[in-house]
């Protein structure tokens, strides 16, 4: 089946240990930090790429909203992993924007994709962003596009003969709900999936690059607000007084630990 898969995903600073909020709120030096494609969305992208590979004629679009210059940098790496067409939106950085605004922008961008049949759409994304970490954007995009079959924290997708989808969603306590979806359109917000990160393949990058560069140059500004008032933004400050136990025989440590566990 010639799937039309749209993957929504932003970018996230990585490594994260130097994050420090500043009034705005924003992150101090966020644009200086190295960034990656949002790790949750990346899982969705790898699954999309895999599905497209198995189904000739399938096509993957990535709709991404981030500051254009940084998005461009990140995309030069992502584009080497699998074939896709980028639909970039030049939006604000970071996680302090509201999912309503982001979803509006993403849905509007998806509607403008030439040749996309919304009634056959497979909408993919991460189940949360690594920045806002709310897990609300994809459902909003789905709602805006009128998609009533939605799945969250997807671990596995099985495409069955006849085009129906069997979906495993991750529940609390490590259980999984299994559902059968008889047809498209559908929205799948992925948890980790099962696929490793594809290795870079420079020729794929070059092939993607032909459309990537002009698309980025033409990326439209997509304003997004916070939608709320931030009363306080801070790094957690609890520092524990760590007791360091050195030079104690293993047997004694083991006894102490067992005692502590059984208390």
């Amino acid at each position: 089946m010639s799937y039309q898969i749209v993957v929504c995903g932003g970018i996230a600073p990585d490594p994260l240990q130097t994050l420090e909020p500043v009034p705005g709120p924003a992150l101090k030096n966020e644009m200086m930090l190295p960034h990656v494609f949002d790790p949750w969305a990346a899982h969705a992208l790898y699954e999309a790429g895999h599905l497209a590979k198995l189904n000739p004629g399938a096509k993957v679009w990535v709709v991404s909203m981030a500051p254009k210059a940084k998005l461009q940098q990140v995309m030069m790496t992502v584009a080497q992993k699998l074939p896709f067409e980028l639909v970039p939106l030049d939006g604000p950085p970071g996680g302090f924007t509201d999912s309503a605004d982001v979803a509006e922008a993403l849905a509007a961008a998806i509607r403008t994709i030439a040749g996309l049949d919304l009634s056959r759409l497979l909408l993919f994304g991460g189940w949360e962003s690594a920045t806002r970490g709310a897990g609300t954007t994809m459902q909003r995009v789905g709602a805006l596009l009128g998609i009533t079959e939605q799945f969250l924290a997807v671990d596995q997708l099985e495409v069955r003969d006849g085009g129906s989808l069997r979906v495993w969603e991750r529940l609390e306590g490590g259980r999984q709900q299994v559902s059968l979806c008889s047809g498209l359109p559908a929205m799948l917000a992925w948890a980790t999936g099962h696929l490793p990160e594809p290795p870079n393949h420079p020729p794929t990058g070059m092939a993607n690059g032909r459309l990537l560069m002009p698309a980025l140059q033409k990326a439209k500004p997509a304003p997004a607000g916070a939608g709320c008032t931030f009363l306080d933004v801070s790094l957690p400050k609890q520092i524990r007084q760590t007791v360091i136990v050195k030079d104690k025989p293993a047997a004694e440590i083991a006894r102490e630990i067992v005692e502590w566990i059984t208390q």
């Binding site: 996230a12 994050l19 302090f96 970490g133 009363l231 306080d232 933004v233």
Partner: peptide, 26 residues
């Protein structure tokens, strides 16, 4: 989502992969 504290008019939750604590009002 992921609210760890709800007070009249405000919510406390985490951002950036659980590294930043935020209290917000809407």
């Amino acid at each position: 989502t992921h609210a760890v504290d709800i007070s009249p008019g405000s919510v406390r939750r985490w951002y950036y992969r659980q590294r930043i604590e935020v209290t917000l009002a809407r």
